[in-house]
């Protein structure tokens, strides 16, 4: 990818910029937020946007801008770790399936079926009952959901490459399965993984919101965009602002990531188009 390429895909630029901007906003909250997010002051609750609190205060008198910053970070981290788990486990499985074939492939497919057979919400419910609700719970549930997605994408991409002449040549030259997977298959599916990763990131942010809504995601005093939206839900008719802020933030982040993902796909390799989308149903 080079800069001219970016110039030819303006939506990619917009999407990437917006997504990075939100991610930075979240990152900054690690060092600085306008107000400490744990600081509760009931006397100052439900302030609308004022000079001191740009986005007002919530039902516990906390600064909403600070909460949005930290919440964005949580949402990104949860979704991001979910993607890392998915890639870390799923990609080796998918590559192994192609490189070894036979029984390994069958096992990988069955494992992927089993993981896929457990709906993410059910996994989250079970994990929450086992270890208590929390961000970790959301990360694991989203990560497990991502594993078969990446396994299938990696396998699909690698299958196409495995039939190429240079792979056969490498095999003839005495390269083992693992080496083939690492040297020839993996580098060639990187772009595919980046595209899928962007899509799964946006799905993960939505999933975190959903899990928080049913009480299985992030727990106070920590915060996430989903948790903010949940807390504000019952106050919607009285203080709609409280849900508009985190709700819009989620919508914008997800749109930014999706536009970036679509743009990346177009920019990197137009032929990858369906493969990347195949598992977007979740």
């Amino acid at each position: 990818m080079n800069w001219q390429l970016l110039g030819r895909h303006p939506s990619l630029v917009v999407g990437l910029l917006a997504a990075v901007l939100f991610a930075l906003l979240g990152l900054v909250s690690l060092w600085w937020t306008p107000f400490p997010i744990e600081q509760i002051s009931i006397a100052r609750r439900f302030l609308g946007p004022v000079a001191e609190h740009w986005l007002g205060t919530d039902h516990l008198g906390r600064d909403i801008l600070s909460l949005v910053m930290r919440g964005t970070l949580t949402s990104f981290v949860v979704a991001g770790l979910g993607v890392i788990i998915g890639i870390g486990v799923g990609v080796p499985l998918g590559l192994a399936a192609v490189a070894w074939g036979g029984i390994v492939e069958w096992l990988v497919l069955r494992l992927s079926d089993i993981t896929f057979a457990f709906p993410a919400v059910i996994v989250a419910i079970l994990i929450a009952a086992l270890f208590g609700p929390g961000e970790i719970n959301a990360v694991i549930a989203i990560g497990i959901f991502n594993i078969p997605v990446f396994a299938r994408v990696a396998r699909g991409g690698a299958l196409a490459i495995a039939t190429q002449d240079y792979v056969a040549a490498a095999r003839l030259a005495g390269l083992g399965n693992a080496a083939i997977a690492a040297r020839h298959l993996l580098p060639n599916i990187m772009s595919l993984l980046i595209v899928q990763g962007t899509i799964q990131l946006s799905l993960g942010i939505l999933a975190e919101a959903g899990l928080s809504y049913i009480g299985l995601g992030t727990q106070p005093p920590a915060t996430s965009l989903g948790l903010m939206l949940r807390d504000a839900q019952s106050l919607f008719l009285i203080h709609p602002w409280l849900s508009v802020v985190p709700g819009l933030t989620i919508v914008l982040i997800v749109i930014a990531l999706n536009i970036a993902g679509d743009g990346l796909r177009d920019a990197i390799d137009p032929r990858l188009r369906h493969e990347g989308l195949n598992h977007g149903a979740g």
Binding site: E38, Q39, I40, I42, L60, A128, A129, G132, P133, G134, Q219, P220, P221
Partner: peptide, 23 residues
């Protein structure tokens, strides 16, 4: 959440653990 914030003022640091009823 409110008590955690109040106790923090006197130096008591509370870790909140949310649980289901059964647990």
């Amino acid at each position: 959440q409110i008590i955690a914030s109040q106790f923090a003022e006197v130096g008591i640091d509370l870790e909140l653990i949310n649980m289901e009823w059964a647990q």
